[in-house]
Nucleic acid binder design. Structure first.
Lengths: 201, 201
DNA sequence: TCGTTGATGATACGAGCGTATCAATGCCGA
DNA sequence: TCGGCATTGATACGCTCGTATCATCAACGA
């Protein structure tokens, strides 16, 4: 066989090319030809590794989740150890909010995928997410830890608070991307609610 | 001239056909031909009233805003008069949350437009919204009134709270449409936060 | 009454899309 | 060494899209 190439590496190369296009010009512009050009390969190669367009789209999504996960982890690791649960929650949410170019691109791309599902709900069924609620459960755990540490009022329900914080952050993010609000103001609103949620140190 | 037809009525007929398609099959399926068929007119007529696709899209958006505004107003009117500011806020937010078919369709369609702007930011510039932040300002006013009535802690900032509640509701709505959460659970999360925000009666 | 003009219809065009087809290439096991 | 197969390339097909073109119809002002 010709130079035996690592399939997974090739798929990643192509999948990330798609993400790059989606982030800058939208998923609509991410035709198979465009993806091939962006990845520096032929159209046929894209077809070879992802038999169909849907496979390409769904196959690329995990690389996006990977990027976001790595970003959050890096922010948390930067807190020093052991970090206070409150600081972990704040860091994770602020990592999700679209403030710099990376987070803006991640969010824009996620929203593009969300729109794809809107248009064709059958796509959601085909996609077997590893765990779409992983972040929310992680936050729930950290909030419970914050309660144990006395940083959060004991009568709060960590699950509801985590769901609310994530929805708040996502909603703020959408308003930033939509141009309704600057990322600075969005951060201010998020911090306002976090400050009221947690007890003063 | 041939039967002088009311232009505005025709535009509305076509625009609402587009909204119907967008709500059910996505904005991607809303080609000019499909819109023409849905509206029961010829393709040429769609071109006649909206010279270009962009005009059709942007021209239809106000009808959607109208629908949402009417829905919110109806909910508020149903509260009796004069309604407590707190109840107005709750009713408005619950009207926005996608719980029944109407609110689901409205939200789905809004999100489809949002995705359109993602793909082509120049569209946002072409669209002169009457007031995209009208709802947020309305909520801010109601929250200030709630403070005056002692329903809301005096040290809260109504603007930040309004922004937060709207972002929370939008984020929850997206998770419902995305299939991550049922509308019942989303309502529960929203009510949880509203209950904690306002003083017990 | 008649020609001007607003309103509608039928059809064509070029581009981009996803997908399919048919070859070439080069490495490795037997 | 050689034949088969994994890998890559070039190109074609059929479809739908937005848009443009040309023709037709009906009413009102003069």
């Amino acid at each position: 066989m010709p130079q035996r190439v690592d399939h997974e590496q090739r798929r990643r190369q192509i999948g990330e090319a798609l993400l790059r296009i989606a982030a800058t010009r939208g998923l609509l512009a991410a035709s198979m030809r465009e993806v091939a050009a962006e990845a520096g390969v032929s159209l046929r190669l894209v077809q070879y590794y992802f038999h169909t367009k849907d496979e390409l789209l769904l196959g690329s999504l995990p690389y996006l989740a990977e990027r976001l996960g790595a970003r959050i982890e890096a922010r948390i690791r930067a807190l020093g150890s052991p970090p206070a649960p409150r600081d972990v929650v704040v860091a994770a949410l602020e990592a999700v909010l679209p403030t710099d170019q990376e987070s803006r691109q991640i969010r824009t791309t996620y929203d593009a995928f969300y729109a794809l599902v809107l248009a064709d709900p059958s796509l959601a069924a085909k996609y077997e997410a590893k765990d779409p609620d992983a972040l929310e459960r992680f936050l729930t755990g950290q909030l419970a830890a914050a309660q144990a540490a006395g940083e959060l009022a004991a009568d709060h329900d960590p699950g509801h608070v985590a769901a609310g914080l994530l929805a708040l952050t996502n909603g703020l993010g959408a308003s930033v991307i939509g141009g309704q609000r600057s990322s600075e103001v969005a951060t201010e609103v998020l911090d306002y609610h976090l400050d009221r949620l947690f007890r003063p140190r």
